[in-house]
Design a protein around this nucleic acid. Structure first.
Lengths: 244, 244
DNA sequence: TTGCTCCTCACGTCACGTGAGGTGGC
DNA sequence: TTGCTCCTCACGTCACGTGAGGTGGC
């Protein structure tokens, strides 16, 4: 038989057959005067054995080990088939989880647009007027928050939904947002400390679910984005939150 | 931020970050005097965007296409997420099927031992005596049949179970097997023709489920294994079966 | 001063796929 | 004589992993 014929019978390509020869999985058959490989029954049997295991997902190294020690008992073969099945179980679970998240994200319409997502959320809560846009600095902040939060902006919005949905909370949160936006270098230390304390009291403690992000990194990121006064305010707030 | 810091925040390795730079997925950030990359908020945002899509299984080429045309609508993004999910569905199905076959084979104890499987089957049907071994030539034939049959030897045995399990059939099948084994070069053409006709009448038509194997290939394989008389017998049988 | 992180090549991974350039077989 | 199959390099795939050999930063 020619290489194309045995390949067809084994259900693999000729390239795969040559590959198995080159790595020693299947011995080279005899050659004719033209250099063509001539396969006999044993050669086909050896090839099909390998092709079957490959089709089941067994790596070449494992197949080689099995061929090197043909006295390996059936028990051991059953065991390795079972362990391949177990590995597949794990992979199927991972893929299923990813698929479910993909379907969620495809339906949520908020993936990859953190600023728009936040704008919509704030408008729905009347923190922004229907036609009012988010200030540029806060759009950047939204993208950063989205990047740092494992669940992205929609996860953040979900997490903050309790606060944003609470009408009573909004009556005192809105003025705080105004005061935060008004901070500049002319704000006095006393003002900053009072605002920091007020904000720390008002804001919910971040749930431990989100892995803690090194505050030094956040500081580095925001360093060139905030005014010195805002940076001092953030530090005061963080200290106040930590004591909480 | 350093490359290690952004990599940690994005949940990837530093090598992956450099790779994204080298293929143009994430722009190179500014460098310090020491040659170190210095990442700012935008750089982190760009990196996390890519890392999220990669974690969802989107190929780099697709991510690049999406970045090249940022005006691509949310609809299109939802669509590609959905199509990724659909691809995963297919892969999950394939993996589940393979896993099930692995579990079957692990339990069947007959994978990879066609001759032993056939010996057991024949002993159970009393075609072989309990201690009688399969003749060497028939062991080879069993391995070849196993290799050529898509379901392997256990599939073949299952397929032949109806015939082997039928006590009445065995009463006339056993003598036919004896007559087949006795064929040699002294057998006359008439004898061969009669035996071929008898065998063709007795054997079940192979079910069409098994993909037909080119008879010329089988002939090549058996050419050096059978005596000329046996080859003639096979040809006569095949002709008789085809007419059936 | 000692680790630790960073830098840039550049080869390795895994199981073949895919030409490139040439020759034998029906 | 014309396709078709076969032959042997040898690079390509995919997304990085892994040293190798060297230097800056805390």
């Amino acid at each position: 038989l020619s290489i194309g014929e045995v390949a067809g019978l084994a259900g693999v390509t000729t390239r795969a057959v040559r590959h198995y020869h080159s790595v020693g999985l299947v011995p080279e058959p005899a050659r004719g005067s033209s250099g063509y490989r001539h396969y006999r029954a044993e050669d086909l049997v050896a090839l099909v054995r390998v092709a079957r295991l490959r089709a089941l997902g067994m790596p070449i190294a494992d197949i080689r080990a099995r061929i090197a020690t043909p006295e390996m008992s059936e028990m051991t073969l059953s065991d390795s088939l079972r362990s391949l099945a177990d590995e597949l179980d794990g992979e199927i679970q991972r893929l299923s989880a990813t698929r479910d998240r993909l379907r969620d994200l495809a339906g949520s319409e908020s993936f990859g647009n953190p600023a728009d997502t936040l704008t919509r959320a704030l408008r729905a809560r009347r923190v922004l007027e229907p036609e009012q846009e988010l200030p540029a600095a806060e759009r950047t902040a939204a993208e950063l928050l989205d990047a740092l939060h494992p669940g992205g902006m929609s996860g953040l919005v979900d997490q903050a939904a309790g606060l944003l949905g609470d009408q009573e909370a909004m009556t005192w949160l809105a003025p705080l947002i105004e005061r935060f936006r008004a901070v500049d270098d002319r704000s006095s230390d006393t003002e900053l400390e009072v605002l920091a304390a007020d904000l720390a009291r008002a804001l919910p403690r971040p749930p431990q679910a989100a892995p803690p992000i090194d505050t030094a990194l956040v500081d580095k990121l925001l360093g060139d984005r905030l005014s010195p006064a805002q940076r001092r305010l953030m530090h005061l707030m963080r200290r106040a939150m930590d004591r909480k």
